[in-house]
């Protein structure tokens, strides 16, 4: 939900329909509610309700349609236009929606997207977003909300949506555990799992944890003889054990113990880059992107299908890892992940 013109339909068409940002200018205002069933991870059906934001519609959602709109909601995504001319009105509607949500779908998660951040000049973005976040948290009156700055013109949209869908995947932490295992088998630095059509990140391997904190992992961790432990750039910082439940919140931000210190925006940037290349493939030669292999100076990487509904990216920084080996490991891991995925969805 969100005011008319705030960008709801645009982001939906980018994430779920593989349309380029440049085409969104042609979208007309959404009339009433547009319902979309999108298959996510094959068997998980997301029922997206794109609610046209003109005042007349908003009033009707909040009055006559109140119970229809706000029942059985798993996630509310509220979009705020950074250039909105009437922020007061936006907030009133938002608070009213929140009330209705509390009544009809008490367990729903709430995400607030401060959108069109590209219209704010680069170095002011952080400040502007910080201020909006503060305001919105106050207005949410104690309700747990995730606030993200987004734009259809950069990777920020993928970051926000990855977090959103992450909350809908029941067994993300199990996936993460197996990705970590796969990483270890490949001597890889990192393994990242993407959903096939959206290319949103659904899980990642947990970072190598040198030196292993005694409380978090089982004896298995002591068998990792990772050369990373001896690298000079890894100072012994206080350990912040990652519990498997909050992994969603910690994976794509700063990994304090990561000796590689890879770019903190790499996950969402990868989603964006692959999405846009996929688009080029279908637009220019009407072929579908299938896989990618890189042997660069600093790392090798393979991006390939893992299961019917997922892609996996394996990144290795150790000199002896060949992409052929990574590909082989992906092939070997396929069956296990097909099973896991089946399990995780049945249990939901």
């Amino acid at each position: 939900m969100g005011a008319s013109g705030s960008g709801k339909t645009s982001m939906r068409s980018l994430i779920f329909s593989n349309n380029p940002a440049s085409l969104t200018a042609r979208l007309g205002a959404t009339i009433d509610v547009e319902q979309n069933h999108v298959r996510f991870l094959g068997d998980l059906i997301l029922n997206l309700w794109d609610c046209g934001g003109q005042d007349a519609f908003m009033d009707s959602y909040l009055n006559s349609q109140r119970s229809t709109i706000f029942s059985h909601v798993a996630v509310l995504i509220y979009v705020f236009d950074i250039e909105s001319r009437d922020t007061q009105k936006d907030l009133e509607y938002y608070k009213d929606c929140l009330e209705a949500l509390k009544k009809y779908s008490a367990g729903a998660r709430v995400f607030l997207l401060v959108h069109k951040m590209d219209l704010v000049r680069g170095r002011e973005r952080e400040g502007v977003l910080g201020k909006r976040r503060g305001e919105l948290e106050v207005e949410s009156g104690g309700m747990q909300v995730g606030v993200f700055g987004t734009s259809i013109y950069d990777e920020s949209l993928y970051k926000a949506w990855s977090r959103i869908v992450h909350t809908l995947i029941p067994n993300a932490s199990v996936l993460s555990k197996h990705l970590t295992k796969l990483a270890k088998c490949c001597s890889a630095t990192e393994v990242i799992l993407f959903e096939r059509t959206t290319f949103l990140v659904i899980a990642t391997s947990s970072p190598p944890t040198p030196p292993p904190p005694p409380t978090t992992t089982t004896t298995a961790s002591s068998t990792i003889t990772s050369p990373t432990t001896s690298l000079p750039t890894s100072p012994s910082k206080p350990n912040q054990p990652l519990s498997s439940t909050n992994i969603a919140e910690t994976t794509s931000t700063d990994l304090v113990d990561d000796p590689h210190q890879l770019s903190p925006t790499r996950y969402e940037r990868t989603s964006e880059l692959i999405k846009s290349f996929k688009h080029s493939c279908s637009r220019f030669v009407r072929e579908e992107f299938h896989s990618l292999e890189l042997e660069l100076g600093e790392f090798s990487a393979v991006l390939d299908e893992l299961t019917k509904n997922t892609y996996v990216l394996i990144v290795a920084h150790q000199g002896f890892v060949e992409t052929a080996a990574l590909k082989l490991n992906i092939r070997l891991a396929r069956k296990k992940f097909e099973e896991l995925q089946g399990d995780s969805l049945i249990s939901s």
């Binding site: 210190q261 770019s263 990868t270 880059l273 600093e298 790392f299 990487a301």
Partner: peptide, 11 residues
Amino acid sequence: AFGPLYKSVSA
């Protein structure tokens, strides 16, 4: 764009 994303400070 891909190269710098996964560039390691220590490898």
